[in-house]
């Protein structure tokens, strides 16, 4: 239990710093940035207190926002992603989620991909809509959402593969 707590706190801090110090400066092709910190929401323990999870997601978003001077857009995006996570888990992993015994590293690739992709897509869509804050720029929002989603998804899948523990 304790090791889980510490690994989550460590992941929180490391991901925030990684995001604001390195990843926010990538600007691939002018405006495409990966938002790797969504990984925290993906890996947070599936069981346990949902209210606490919502609150921690909000905290994660606000920490990024303070560094980025972006008001509350990351906080809102994280909240929405955290709120819909149980539904997405059920959608992607089906029955095994209800038995509460899945490990992300041990799931089939297709299910993992759909879970990661949908979470990232929802997060990015809320993020960029609030960033533009106007209906006139809906095309730009969609463009940014799609490209950044692809970039983030690839990066998350790579880091999941890199840092997955081998259970044998």
């Amino acid at each position: 239990m304790n090791s889980k707590l510490f690994s989550n706190i460590g992941r929180f801090v490391i991901l925030v710093f990684l995001q604001v110090l390195i990843l926010n400066n990538i600007n691939f092709a002018g405006y495409i940035n990966p938002y790797l910190y969504v990984l925290f929401l993906l890996l947070y323990p599936f069981t346990g207190n949902q209210s606490l999870f919502l609150f921690i997601s909000f905290l994660l978003g606000v920490s990024i926002d303070v560094f980025e001077d972006s008001g509350g857009i990351n906080a809102a995006a994280c909240l929405v992603a955290a709120f819909v996570r149980p539904n997405l888990l059920r959608f992607s992993f089906g029955i095994s989620y209800d038995h509460q015994n899945i490990r992300l590293s041990a799931t089939p690739f297709g299910a993992k991909l759909s879970y990661v992709f949908l979470m990232v897509l929802i997060h990015h869509f809320v993020l960029f809509s609030l960033e533009m804050f106007s209906i006139n720029h809906i095309l730009l929002v969609l463009k940014k959402t799609i490209f950044s989603t692809i970039f983030t998804t690839i990066l998350i899948l790579l880091s999941l593969t890199l840092f997955s523990k081998k259970y044998r």
Partner: peptide, 29 residues
Amino acid sequence: NSILFLILFVVSVFLTVQNHAFHKSRFLS
């Protein structure tokens, strides 16, 4: 959970809006 979500969501949208108001962003920068 839904109520907590709504409250926090309203807070973050409020932060976003007041960040859009020129010279009025007070809280987080």
